[in-house]
Write a protein that binds this DNA or RNA. Structure first.
Length: 191
DNA sequence: TATGAGATCAACT
DNA sequence: GTTGATCTCATAC
């Protein structure tokens, strides 16, 4: 498989361009991971975004340069992985919601304490646990280990829909997924 | 299939 | 004190 690395300029654009282009890309953390099949875009003008109300210690990375990882704790227990986008200071990010596991299946099963492959990485909290992502990854550059990001070979069919689990700006269609994938956290409405 | 509780932390009221 | 970019397990239909 031809592997083209994703370089920092890829992320120095609008989240709304970056998010759909991440579908089908390969993400590895510490050598394990797979193909990204579901993401959501969060822009700082968007009431659902952590950055909407300005900078705090938690979301500071979102206000830094693009091409870095923003990791936060969700509901007190889970870790969620985001990619910071756009030029410095714009404070937008793409939430990685689901991955089709291809590399390091055994290690990810061990980290998740789980046998079923379909549920390994199908959800933001799940994929973070499977790849061992935690607060130590907050602020790390995405073009350096332990992160590895590779561009997709061909543009896949993209499904779009409303984002999941939010109450503010819940009608914005900023969720993107690989059409027909079994590894989505939730199916997209048929279109 | 569907709802409900619990885990547990940062930000906000 | 409440809420949220969540998930798992339990109990009820």
């Amino acid at each position: 498989m031809a592997r083209r690395k994703l370089h920092p300029p890829f992320f120095a654009r609008s989240v709304h361009r970056v998010a759909p282009e991440l579908i089908g890309a390969t993400l590895l953390v510490g050598g394990v991971g797979g193909r990204i099949v579901e993401v959501e875009a969060y822009h700082h003008t968007d009431p659902a975004a952590h950055s909407y109300r300005g900078q705090t210690p938690r979301n500071a990375v979102m206000f830094g340069p693009p091409g870095h990882a923003y990791v936060y704790r969700s509901y007190g227990i889970h870790w969620c992985l985001n990619f910071v986008c756009e030029p410095e200071g714009s404070a937008s990010a793409v939430l990685i919601r689901a991955i089709e596991p291809t590399e390091g299946l055994a290690k990810m099963r061990r980290l998740r304490g789980l046998a079923e492959e379909r549920l390994l990485c199908s959800g933001p909290g799940r994929l973070a646990e499977a790849m061992g992502v935690k607060i130590a990854h907050n602020g790390l550059a995405l073009d350096r280990l332990p992160f590895e990001l590779y561009a997709r070979d061909e543009a896949p069919e993209i499904a779009t829909g409303v984002r999941i689990g939010i109450t503010k700006a819940a009608d914005l269609p900023w969720r993107y997924g690989l059409k027909g994938s079994k590894f989505l956290s939730k199916p997209f409405k048929e279109g």
